[in-house]
Every structure is written in C-alpha cells, then in structure tokens.
Simulated scan of single mutants.
Amino acid sequence: MATPTPASTYDERGAVQPLPTRPPLNGLATLALVYGIIAVAAGILPAVRQITGSLAVPAVALAATGLANARRLDGAGMKQAAIGLVTGFAGLAISLATYLTT
C-alpha cells in the first residue's frame, strides 16, 4: 500500500505542487558577525579581551569567506557577512588604539 502524500501538496485543480524548500544558510557569515561583535566588545572592555583574546582578525577572514559564499548561495548571509566585516575592522581598530595608548 502506498503512503499518502500530504494534502497541502495539491492545488485547487488536483495537481501536485512541490513542497517549499528552505533557503540556503551561510554559517560563515553568522560566525563572522558573532566574532565581530565580540571583537568590538573586547576592544572596549578589557575584561572581555582577557577572556577572548583578539577575535578581530578571524572575524575579518570569516567575513571575507562568508561574502564569497553569499555570492555563490544567491545572497544568503550577505548582510551578516558585511556587518561582520565592518565590526571586525572596527574591533581591530579599537583594539589597536587601546593597545597603542596604554
């Protein structure tokens, strides 16, 4: 006996419709965003820098790779990677400024 398909796959005429697919995910862009936010926090707060070290350089590298993946994945994670790149550079600038002034 054949297993029945869900009723949501049929339209009004009885034709089978494909199930909606999930959009592609860009994990590198998400990781770049998280690392960039932590890098900015580490630049501002010395206690965070003691725990995490400098995550600005990995944030920039992950963001660049995330942007390349976003082009390949039809724009998935483009904004996250771009914000990760900006926050990574900002965290790097803040960390260098605090290092040079102390």
Rank of each mutant, 00 (worst) to 15 (best):
M1F: 07
M1C: 09
M1T: 12
A2Y: 03
T3N: 13
P4V: 10
P4T: 11
P4N: 13
P4C: 06
T5V: 11
P6T: 04
P6V: 04
A7M: 06
S8Q: 10
S8V: 05
S8M: 11
S8C: 09
Y10M: 09
D11E: 11
E12D: 12
E12L: 14
E12N: 12
E12S: 14
A15E: 15
A15Y: 10
V16N: 02
V16S: 11
V16W: 03
Q17I: 14
Q17L: 13
Q17F: 00
P18L: 11
L19K: 13
L19R: 13
L19W: 05
T21H: 04
T21G: 12
T21Y: 02
T21R: 11
R22L: 15
R22T: 15
P23M: 09
P24T: 08
P24R: 11
L25T: 14
L25I: 10
N26H: 08
N26M: 07
G27A: 10
G27I: 10
G27V: 11
L28I: 01
L28P: 01
A29D: 07
A29H: 06
L33S: 02
L33M: 13
V34F: 08
V34K: 01
V34Q: 07
Y35T: 01
Y35H: 05
G36R: 01
I37V: 15
I37Y: 00
I38A: 10
A39C: 03
V40I: 12
A41P: 00
A42C: 03
A42D: 06
A42G: 07
A42E: 01
I44A: 12
I44Q: 03
P46C: 04
P46W: 07
A47F: 12
V48P: 02
V48E: 04
R49Q: 12
Q50S: 14
I51A: 11
G53L: 02
G53Y: 03
G53R: 02
S54Q: 05
L55E: 02
L55C: 01
L55V: 04
V57G: 09
P58H: 02
V60W: 00
A61T: 08
A61W: 08
L62W: 01
L62R: 01
A63C: 03
A63M: 00
A64V: 13
T65G: 04
G66P: 04
L67G: 01
L67Q: 05
N69V: 03
A70L: 11
A70R: 07
A70Y: 07
R71L: 07
R71E: 14
R72N: 08
L73S: 07
D74G: 12
D74T: 12
D74Y: 14
D74P: 01
A76N: 07
A76R: 07
G77A: 09
G77F: 06
G77L: 06
G77V: 08
G77R: 04
M78Y: 09
K79E: 13
K79V: 15
Q80E: 15
A82V: 09
I83W: 07
I83C: 03
G84E: 06
G84T: 04
G84S: 10
L85Q: 02
V86F: 11
T87A: 13
T87C: 12
T87G: 03
F89T: 04
F89L: 13
F89G: 10
G91A: 05
G91C: 02
I94L: 15
S95C: 00
S95I: 01
L96Y: 10
L96M: 14
A97L: 14
A97K: 05
A97C: 05
Y99S: 15
T101W: 08
T101N: 10
T101K: 09
T101C: 03
T102E: 14
T102P: 06
